[in-house]
């Protein structure tokens, strides 16, 4: 910080770069410029998410029902625990980063190295967790069906509406000729998107023959729970089904509103990309510390600047966590 850079300004330095607005160095101020503009980018994303959510306030997916996985606890309903863990990992790596900056102020090279290494590990764990989260989101778990109007219907047990039913439990297998079309198989040199595991007919037949299963709609009642249809209504609605949806992509997803998956991919993806670049930048700085670049330069301001960026990424996650998983 300022102590290592001369703060006395000679008159001839005033226009020669010696002047420090806000008593902060050029590099740090530029990092603040970047952070403010990047914060606006993220708020653009999050506010757009809020817009879509307000627009579909009576049918938006409930985060607790979507993000309920935890490693090694397959099939256990564990909402929020994993993202909470990710939040702690990121906050902790933020702390090791401040400790690195602090050690830099005291010119303690070994401590800076140690804390930078911890920060990099924390960031890597976070990015890995996010990849795992994406994997679960993309693969889906139970599967759902979609109607002509774009409504997603999920299946639950009539007696126990909390328990979802997977498509493979419902489907009544009908032998048919439909095979995946590859570019090598026909005159036309293009292939088609991956076929779902079950056809619409198989699901409808299976659903009709299984009286224990009812449809869970996208719509939300006054208490904030998804509306579950009676068996009679379900039998009527099942005939409107046009697609089988498994997992999520940018077009449709088994969780509900199409925009939900789009925002999930864009917001957490954009944030994950920031964490990833943060890790890469931290690694570069880590090696610079290791070879003594900043020791020779006489100050560790560079560590402080990447520190600012790293805390900013943490700050953004605090908001993403609230608006995507909690609210």
């Amino acid at each position: 910080m300022s102590s290592t850079i001369s703060t006395t300004i000679e008159d001839e330095d005033l226009w020669g770069g010696g002047n420090q607005p806000f008593k902060s160095s050029y590099g740090k101020l530029m990092m603040w410029f970047f952070i403010v503009s990047d914060a606006l980018t993220f708020s653009g994303f999050l506010v757009a998410y809020g817009f879509s959510r307000f627009k579909n306030i009576d049918s938006w997916p409930i985060a607790d029902e979507v993000f309920n996985h935890f490693p090694f606890l397959h099939g256990v309903d564990a909402p929020m625990y994993y993202v909470a863990l990710m939040t702690f990992v990121l906050i902790f790596s933020s702390v090791t980063m401040v400790l690195a900056v602090d050690a830099g102020h005291h010119m303690q090279k070994d401590k800076v190295t140690f804390y930078m290494a911890l920060t990099i590990i924390g960031g890597a764990i976070f990015v890995g967790s996010q990849a795992w989260e994406w994997k679960n989101f993309i693969n889906g778990e139970y599967g759902a069906v979609e109607t002509t109007g774009g409504q997603i219907y999920q299946f639950v047990y009539k007696d126990n509406p909390k328990k979802r039913v997977g498509l493979e439990e419902i489907a009544f297998e009908i032998p048919d000729e439909r095979v995946q079309h590859d570019s090598k198989q026909g005159v036309w040199f293009y292939n088609e998107p991956t076929l779902p595991s079950f056809t619409v007919d198989e699901i409808i037949t299976g659903f009709n023959s299984n009286p224990d299963i009812v449809i869970k709609t996208e719509k939300i009642d006054e208490k904030g729970n998804k509306i579950i249809l009676s068996r009679e209504e379900s039998l009527e609605k099942i005939n409107e089904v046009k697609y089988v949806v498994e997992g999520a992509n940018l077009v449709r997803n088994e969780y509900g509103n199409r925009l939900f998956a789009d925002f999930f991919f864009f917001i957490t993806g954009f944030h994950g990309f920031h964490v990833f670049s943060g890790v890469v930048i931290n690694i570069i700085i880590f090696f610079n510390v290791l070879v003594g670049t900043y020791e020779r330069r006489g100050h560790y301001e560079m560590v402080e600047k990447v520190g600012l960026y790293w805390h900013f990424v943490d700050l953004v996650w605090v908001f993403v966590f609230t608006f995507f998983y909690l609210v």
Binding site: F22, S24, L29, W32, I35, V36, A39, L40, S43, G44, V47, A48, G50, F51, S52, R53, F54, K55, N56, I57, D58
Partner: peptide
């Protein structure tokens, strides 16, 4: 520096939030 960072962000984000949420509500 504190004011330049915080006031800028609070002003712009509050404006953005207000405009878009009101609009989303209206479309609903």
């Amino acid at each position: 520096l504190q004011a330049s960072v915080v006031i800028t962000l609070i002003f712009l984000i509050a404006y953005l939030v207000f405009i878009l949420l009101v609009e989303g509500n209206y479309i609903f």
